[in-house]
Design a protein around this nucleic acid. Sequence first.
DNA 1: CCTACCGATCGGTAGG
DNA 2: CCTACCGATCGGTAGG
Lengths: 213, 213
Amino acid sequence: MTSPPTAPTAPPRRGRPGHDQAAVLGTAIDLFIRQGYDATSMADLAAALGLSKSSLYHHVPSKERLLELALDEALGELTAVVEAATAEGAAGTSYERLRRVVEDGVRLLVDHQPAVTLLLRVHGNTDVERAALERRRWVDDRLADLVAAAVAEGALRADLDPGLVSRLLFGMVNSLVEWYDVDGPVDVDQLAAAVVATALDGLAVGAPRSAPG
Amino acid sequence: MTSPPTAPTAPPRRGRPGHDQAAVLGTAIDLFIRQGYDATSMADLAAALGLSKSSLYHHVPSKERLLELALDEALGELTAVVEAATAEGAAGTSYERLRRVVEDGVRLLVDHQPAVTLLLRVHGNTDVERAALERRRWVDDRLADLVAAAVAEGALRADLDPGLVSRLLFGMVNSLVEWYDVDGPVDVDQLAAAVVATALDGLAVGAPRSAPG
DNA sequence: CCTACCGATCGGTAGG
DNA sequence: CCTACCGATCGGTAGG
């Protein structure tokens, strides 16, 4: 048997197994969150991985590229959830789709909590951060459109500005990345239900409350 | 008329008027928010003030002291509002006091938005930051107690964990520092009303809704 | 002796 | 994957 000239699978590794880029990225995100991006040096990251700084640069081209990869992960997931909820042929009323996007959003923030945490802390100091903020703004605008549509439908209270309501609603959702602990007493189903109950049952005009007991 | 030997008023200044510590602090907070604390050098701050770095150090002992002053401002105000709402002899039911602390909290975040923004971005990398987080935790714990008391009173829905509800409620309140614009179309009264309506009217069991029109 | 401020430079550390 | 370095810049301080 002969090997094809260009093998589609990864070539067999020689030497020590070492680290791959995904492992480096995971540790980097962890340090960026705990210490802050600026306060984390590449020497810190190398030490956490048990590498020298030069070896670290064998796996990643720059510190900023690590941030970019993390932000891409968060934005890719957020974009997919929002597109699914706001696509042309999406099923259900605007209110139903808003309710689903809040639930899916909560699960997404929990599943990708480190990457989303970094995204929510970005403030546009570099080109990479500004590009991420632009994509995030697109997501926020689609969510605001969905809130406005639910208001127009008569499903949400009309005495508040939809843009303001959207900011408060997703401000509440986003805040959970700063305190939610997956290993804590509240599981993700309870969390999603609590967010929907707290925010949407309060916003929905005449929506039924859960009966106590 | 003779001047008293020790004048209680500030002595007359000689030389250039220059800057005082309050002006330096205001500019510092502005830069810390826009660029991040770590990414702001004392040279940046000096340039923004039109001073040399050495002259800047005539007014402030260190960069960290500037952060500490800003965090003290935010924590002092937050502590006062929370103490007023949770003091032994505070008037009203727990629910009424919670509603008032949310309204007062919104006004406080707007009045001291720069300082509070810095406080909410602190993550405990230094002793100054850890001390601030400890004081902030005291505030959060008092607010959680108030939510729990309102649940025990029967005024808030009992099917959700009070600690969880408290985090979601004040996560929503805190989020406004990242987007609210005092010069924008929403004034602070509308903002406070919207927060209370969105969060508490949704939490209050059988609370009356504002009638439309 | 004061307040306000300067050009130059300290010992260390950053990302690469 | 390492030791040995770089150009630059950090927060802070010297003498005047």
